[in-house]
């Protein structure tokens, strides 16, 4: 089943002399349960693509369908609500809220949605993340890997349609990187979670079902 379809997506920054074409007429689609890696050098447009997929940015032209819905048909508020229910975002720098503890950071999207936290599901999530003993710690009391696992937890807790990960291992040592990749893979296999991950590390990309290579805003190769 097709869960994500991208049609002729274009994003242009600036005007005239400073004009930069970050994405140039990109089209592709992703099946449910797929683990797709997007690789490319820095400046190739991969982060732009990810942000457009997540609805945190709007394209110059083109469409993105998630679960059959054109996400840019939504207004800002609806898009925000759509995002907290259907999209999980993972950043290179975790972007946790420093004043909330692990548990609170993970359940933040549920709280925003005024949903009750299913204690059992949360416990299972923490177990999956290996953070059972860290649930009341604040982000600054955690290691980088633990922080990133927290942010993965935050992305997974809502059972989103799709997870978008932007260089999730970019800031981590190799041991932690492996843990994170394993975690993503596990959620892909066990929870049938659709994942799109950006990376410039080919080793990590190889864990994915499919690799899209992006260069100068265009998809040049599909492995």
């Amino acid at each position: 089943m097709e869960i994500l379809r991208v049609e002729n997506l274009t994003k242009i920054y600036g005007k005239d002399t400073t004009k930069v074409i970050a994405l140039d007429n990109v089209s592709f689609s992703v099946e449910k349960g797929e683990f797709v890696a997007i690789v490319g050098a820095s400046g190739s447009g991969k982060s732009t693509l990810l942000h457009l997929l997540g609805g945190v940015d709007r394209p110059t032209s083109g469409k993105v369908y998630i679960d059959g819905k054109d996400i840019y048909d939504f207004n800002d508020d609806k898009l925000a609500i759509f995002r907290r229910r259907q999209v999980g975002l993972i950043y290179q720098f975790y972007n946790l809220i420093p004043i909330l503890n692990v548990e609170e950071n993970i359940t933040l999207p549920l709280s925003l949605d005024n949903r009750e936290v299913d204690q059992k599901a949360l416990d299972e999530m923490l177990k999956l993340l290996g953070l059972q003993n860290r649930r009341t710690h604040l982000p600054n009391e955690l290691s980088g890997g633990q922080q990133q696992r927290t942010s993965i937890g935050r992305a997974l807790i809502t059972n989103p349609t799709i997870i978008l990960a932007d260089e999730p291992t970019g800031n981590l040592d190799s041991k932690s990187s492996d843990e994170i990749v394993a975690l993503l893979k596990k959620s892909n296999k066990e929870l049938k979670q659709t994942i799109i991950m950006i990376t410039h590390n080919m080793e990590i990309a190889k864990c994915a079902d499919r690799i899209l290579k992006i260069e100068d805003g265009r998809i040049v190769e599909e492995v």
């Binding site: 945190v56 800002d76 508020d77 925000a80 609500i81 972007n95 809220i97 933040l108 925003l112």
Partner: peptide
């Protein structure tokens, strides 16, 4: 600033 941006990116609406 970053915190706010993050909150927005994980789906906090403008009115919220």
């Amino acid at each position: 600033k970053q915190e706010f941006a993050m909150l927005k990116s994980i789906g906090m609406t403008n009115s919220e």
